[in-house]
């Protein structure tokens, strides 16, 4: 298999996952804001999660709902449209390797996001629109996992998906903690709702409820999202998936070493302590650096130099 093809499949996997994640984030935040009418930072923190704060500030002066949603819909760098467009570009030359239906869904997604999206920004139609996007992503993923042979192309897509997931989960945790820390007293009553929002952003609420019997609280939520071995969006689980995909590929030692190191570091986290000492942000920084090292190793090993 050509290195270039491997690289494109990996990025296809990443951008597809990012599209789904972004749609879910906007959807969850749109609900969250209804429960927290007085909290001003909600929309801003959505931009924080993408990491494109500077880009946003260049284009808009205020982080109002309309501005943020517009940014997340159509900005050329990090929006839904941009992510779906990149996923499609990366799959275009590799479409022979995936089921035809997946390519058709990819096009459906692209054409859904291509026209002017201003009418979709209003709250009334937004939820349905975002559900449609999430559904298309999941249908596409379903075609891939249901009909692709477990060979190199499938593993590169899976790698992209799990690296992206791990990265997204760390971002969501990071932003949640920045917002929650130091405001404990002020927002105590809403603490519960905010942590629920964090779980919902990652589709983790139900699974968390089944796993953790205690009332919703910060350390438990963060521990679940970082370390739970079974939840598919926990950092630990994503990295385990990455490691297991690596094992199916030739010359995987350096990449496997990097991901195992990242995984061990996650395993050592004591979330209660991290939250109390305000050390969580630094910890997440390190986790993101480890994920990025894993990405670099896999890129050096299998992609075009």
């Amino acid at each position: 298999m050509l290195s270039r093809v491997a690289e494109r499949l990996y990025w296809f996997g990443r951008y597809l996952e990012r599209t789904e994640n972004t749609a879910r984030l906007i959807s969850v935040y749109s609900n969250l804001v209804l429960d927290l009418p007085k909290v001003g930072f909600v929309w801003e923190s959505l931009v924080n999660i993408t990491g494109f704060d500077a880009q946003f500030k260049q284009r808009f002066s205020a982080a109002s709902e309309r501005n943020v949603v517009k940014f997340m819909f159509d900005d050329p760098a990090c929006s839904l449209r941009a992510c779906a467009g990149s996923a499609r570009e990366n799959s275009r030359t590799t479409r022979d390797l995936m089921p035809n239906e997946a390519w058709e869904k990819m096009n459906e997604l692209h054409y859904l996001l291509k026209p002017d999206l201003s009418s979709r920004i209003n709250r009334s139609g937004r939820h349905e629109f975002l559900s449609q996007i999430i559904d298309l992503c999941l249908e596409l993923t379903g075609y891939l996992s249901g009909s692709m042979s477990r060979k190199e192309p499938y593993y590169f897509i899976t790698l992209g998906r799990n690296v992206e997931r791990a990265d997204m989960t760390t971002r969501v945790i990071d932003v949640a903690c920045l917002n929650l820390m130091g405001r404990q007293a002020e927002f105590d009553e809403q603490d519960n709702i905010l942590w629920m929002g964090v779980l919902q952003s990652l589709n983790a609420y139900q699974m968390y409820r089944q796993q953790v019997q205690d009332r919703i609280n910060g350390p438990e939520v963060v521990a679940f999202l970082l370390k739970d071995p079974a939840f598919p969006r926990s950092v630990n689980h994503c990295l385990a998936e990455v490691a297991s995909s690596f094992k199916h590929l030739p010359r995987h030692q350096p990449a496997l070493k990097a991901v195992n190191r990242a995984k061990r570091a996650i395993g050592r986290a004591v979330t209660e302590e991290l939250l109390q000492t305000q050390g969580l942000h630094d910890f997440i920084d390190q986790a993101q650096a480890d994920i990025s090292t894993t990405h670099n190793k896999l890129s050096q090993t299998w992609f075009l130099s």
Binding site: M1, L2, S3, R4, R251, W302, L304
Partner: peptide
Amino acid sequence: ELVEGPDLMVDTDDCVYMKTVQG
């Protein structure tokens, strides 16, 4: 394989190689 220019390289032995995940 459907290759593009950057997928191929000519080494000092004057042979053409393609860059794959196997090497």
